[in-house]
Deep mutational scan, measured.
Amino acid sequence: MSIQHFRVALIPFFAAFCLPVFAHPETLVKVKDAEDQLGARVGYIELDLNSGKILESFRPEERFPMMSTFKVLLCGAVLSRVDAGQEQLGRRIHYSQNDLVEYSPVTEKHLTDGMTVRELCSAAITMSDNTAANLLLTTIGGPKELTAFLHNMGDHVTRLDRWEPELNEAIPNDERDTTMPAAMATTLRKLLTGELLTLASRQQLIDWMEADKVAGPLLRSALPAGWFIADKSGAGERGSRGIIAALGPDGKPSRIVVIYTTGSQATMDERNRQIAEIGASLIKHW
């Protein structure tokens, strides 16, 4: 067993022997301040990774656009098919120029040779490549099948209805392509620590998230040296922004954090800054 596999296998073990965790309302004060600064709703939840206990939450059962955070769930569904012998990570998928959609920095470079399922998941999570996500959605049967996968996990809230990039439209009061912070946090925890996926697939999923290259201005910008984070960000229309993450000190994750916002007129930089400040408060009061 590799060191990384050992780390993920012992996530519940280490967490069980940690000192009790206590909620700190100071972080919620910052979440509410972010709402004021952005002029928009902000949803927040913080779960203990081992027990699933909610440590703090704000608007945990209000719907927010998922945006690209759905790509972690998508690759979880792909990995479940791999575990069941219905898919192979090494299978190569070929596609054409007509398949390319807006923001496809990886797939646009491989029109000639195609990409493997493993490479597509890596591109979808680490670079948020939209064509990679659409190609992977095709392998599982489309958005409705991802929703069905989530329902089978016990998540009857999260739903995907459309493809990239239309799913980022974020129309107010439109339930399409949305989740709730509580539902997303619980589902992410199941994917990373539950028995739904094999140990190898859980490790692969967290490795992809740990290698995320496009979430630097968010929670990662607030992390002290030595902290662990595996995350996936999302951005959408109407001032929408979000991030889902597993993080913790001492090089291992111990909490799940989900943050979503929508309806702001603020710039992307300002949305990023507010999420980073929430992260800084979380870490300060850990």
Rank of each mutant, 00 (worst) to 15 (best):
V101D: 10
H151R: 14
K252W: 10
L188S: 05
A266P: 06
V31P: 01
V72S: 07
G216S: 08
T198W: 05
N173W: 13
A215D: 04
S201I: 04
D155T: 03
V78G: 00
A276K: 13
G239M: 03
T116G: 04
G90V: 11
D48L: 04
L135Q: 07
N272V: 04
G43N: 02
V29M: 15
D212T: 07
T138G: 13
M153K: 07
R159F: 07
S68E: 00
E56R: 09
L191G: 01
E108S: 15
E164M: 03
A123V: 06
L160I: 15
P253Q: 09
R220F: 02
S254E: 14
I45N: 02
H24E: 10
R81S: 08
Q265E: 14
V78P: 00
Q203S: 10
D48G: 06
T158P: 02
H24R: 13
T147M: 09
G90S: 13
S104D: 02
A182H: 15
R271T: 10
I283A: 09
G263D: 10
G114R: 03
R220C: 06
E195Q: 15
A215F: 04
N134D: 05
T112A: 15
R255D: 02
V157W: 11
R118E: 14
E166N: 13
L247P: 04
I45K: 01
E145F: 11
I278R: 02
M66Q: 05
A245T: 06
A40Q: 09
D155V: 00
G43M: 00
A246G: 07
Y103R: 04
L219C: 01
R273N: 11
E145Q: 12
S80G: 14
N50I: 12
R63T: 08
V72H: 02
A183F: 10
D231I: 05
R41D: 06
L73P: 11
E56K: 10
P143H: 08
N168K: 02
F228Q: 06
T126F: 01
E175T: 13
E175W: 13
K53Y: 11
L247W: 07
W163F: 10
M184T: 01
L146S: 01
G216L: 08
L150N: 05
A183P: 07
G114V: 01
T69F: 00
A132C: 01
I140S: 05
P181R: 00
T139L: 15
S128Q: 01
S128A: 01
V78E: 02
K232H: 00
D174G: 06
R81G: 07
L282R: 03
L137A: 06
A183W: 08
S80H: 15
Q265D: 15
G39E: 13
D212H: 04
A148Y: 11
E26R: 09
M209D: 00
L188Y: 08
H24G: 12
T178N: 03
L73M: 11
V106G: 07
Q203W: 09
R118M: 12
L197H: 06
E270L: 11
I243N: 01
T147Q: 10
L38E: 06
I171A: 15
M66D: 00
D33T: 14
D161K: 02
D177V: 01
L49W: 13
S233I: 00
K213L: 12
D212Y: 03
N130C: 05
G141H: 06
Q37G: 13
A215N: 06
A170I: 09
F64P: 01
T261S: 11
E270R: 09
Y260N: 02
V82M: 07
E61C: 08
D231M: 02
E62A: 08
R92W: 09
T178C: 06
E164K: 01
L136E: 01
V214A: 08
L28T: 09
S51L: 07
V78N: 02
F228T: 07
I256R: 01
L136W: 03
V82Y: 07
S281K: 15
K252I: 14
E56W: 05
D161E: 07
R271L: 14
V29A: 15
L188C: 08
L74E: 02
Y103L: 05
G226S: 12
S96P: 07
P224K: 08
M184P: 00
G279I: 06
G239T: 03
L146T: 03
E169N: 11
V117M: 11
T138S: 13
I275K: 02
I140L: 15
L282F: 09
L49C: 06
D99P: 05
R189I: 08
